[in-house]
Structures are given as structure tokens and as C-alpha cells.
Computed example of a mutant assay.
Amino acid sequence: MSAPSATRLPTDLAVDTSPIVLTPATGTDLDDIWRAVVPETRVRANDVHLPMSLAYAERLCAVHPEADSLLVRVTILLHDTGWGRVDEERIFSEGFSGDWRKAQIRFEHERQGCLIAQEVLPPLGYDAEFVERVVTIIDGHDTRQYSKSLEDTLVRDADRLWRFDYAGIAVAASWFRLDPSTYADRLETEILPELLTEAGHTIAVAHLARSRALLKTDVLR
């Protein structure tokens, strides 16, 4: 899914492009959800990806106050938990090789993520309508070629933004069996054009430049 600059969601507010480590996700209101999905965070580096993505989601919500921030935050926390309930060997043999965007394992992890949301949220007090809105975004977040709502858009960008940080590059490059320099190039040519918000694009450009400098990608090729 490509988002030319002319069609990216704009914002009139200042965008924070500082290192994401300086602004971890705030508050403890989601801690009960985290506790409910600890086993699902121990697969595919979800225990790195999900907290970082939540922090990015909160930055995007800060410049899009019209969005339902609770919906965005809960959904990004849960969106990839489905990886914890699929065959881990298939995650890497199918999910990160060949035509990886269309790999069946990706559809499977989305389905499992929807089931997890339906399992963990109602006992924590989230009503059926809210849970359905979460599931609607999780379903197809990797495989659907369009965004259904503002909140879906913010979740999609947050899901991608973590990769532009040096920690995200280190993790994701290993998934694709690429060196950091090659993966950084791939971020610029493939993932950066997919970002749907001006804020997300601005953050990604700043973080990628910072990561490339830190990792010496200009010479370590």
C-alpha cells in the first residue's frame, strides 16, 4: 500500500522526532492487558516490537487528537499477539521470505490476534462494541490493502515506525537475513512510501537518518 505525499494525512501540530526511547508509552492503564498476553509477547520479538509500536502510536495520537486514542493504543498492543499462536518455524520460513506479504501465515496470525482480543478484553471490562472495533483493525492489518478508519491508519503507521529505530533495524534485519545497511535501504524504498500520515513520514525520515549514522551503514556494506 503506497501513500504519495499528496495523500498522506496531514497535521497542523508539531511532530516529535526525538529518539523514541525518550518517550516510552505513558501510564499504567493498559498493564492488565500486557499481563494477559505475556506468553504471546515472547515470540518473534513481540516483547520489543509491541512496546515500541505503542510508544510510536502515542506520538501519532498526540498530533491527531481527533482519533480515539484508547482504541489505537489497545489495538497496537494486541495487533501482533497472534504470532504467539502459530507455528514459530513457519513465521520465519514463510513470513519473511519470497512473497512474504501474501504468506498464508500472515493471515493466520491476524485471525489468531482477533481471537486473542476477544478473549482478553471482555474480562477486563471492555464492552462488545469496543472489542469489535479493535478486531476490525487487527483483521487485515498486514494483508489488507487499505485503511478502514483514522484509528486504523494510525495503527498501521505505528506498526511500521518501530522498524526505523536502530533497535527495530537490528531485529527486523535478522528476520529477513539482511545486513543493517541493506535493510535500511529497503526501509527507504519499500516501507517509507507506505506510511499514511505526514507525522509518521516525518518521524521515519528522522529516525532512519539517525539509525544509519549510528550503525555506520554508509561504510558497513
Rank of each mutant, 00 (worst) to 15 (best):
E110K: 00
L214A: 15
G82D: 01
D31I: 01
A213Q: 09
H109T: 14
L178D: 13
S2E: 12
R156Y: 04
D31K: 08
D29L: 10
I203A: 08
R42G: 13
F107A: 06
T11L: 05
D142N: 14
T197S: 14
A209N: 06
W100D: 07
I169R: 03
M1I: 11
H207C: 03
D159Q: 14
W83K: 15
C61G: 09
E119A: 11
M1K: 09
R106A: 06
T153A: 04
I20A: 08
E89T: 07
H64N: 10
F96L: 01
T197M: 05
L78G: 15
P193K: 00
E194Y: 00
L121W: 12
E188R: 12
A172M: 12
S211C: 05
A204M: 02
W83P: 00
H201D: 13
R210T: 12
P180W: 05
E110T: 00
K102C: 10
R85G: 11
V43F: 11
E58W: 02
E88N: 05
A209E: 09
A206L: 08
A103W: 09
A213M: 11
R221V: 07
P24K: 01
W175A: 08
E88W: 05
L192N: 05
A199F: 12
L13T: 04
E188Y: 06
D159I: 08
S18V: 01
E40W: 00
M52Q: 08
I169Y: 14
E110D: 06
L30W: 04
F130T: 11
I76C: 02
L71N: 07
D139G: 05
V63S: 04
A55E: 04
F96N: 14
D87T: 06
W100K: 11
E188S: 15
A45K: 03
T197H: 10
A57Q: 03
S93A: 13
R90F: 10
T153L: 09
A184L: 02
V205N: 12
G200V: 14
V15D: 13
H207W: 15
L9N: 02
A6F: 11
V135W: 05
R212G: 06
E129D: 11
D152Q: 01
P39W: 13
R177N: 11
I33P: 02
L13N: 03
D152V: 07
R221K: 14
L215S: 06
A128V: 04
I105A: 06
T41H: 15
R111H: 15
P123C: 01
T81W: 02
H109F: 14
D47Y: 12
T7N: 14
Y183A: 10
V43I: 15
E194D: 00
N46L: 08
D16T: 03
G200R: 14
D16L: 05
S53W: 12
P193I: 00
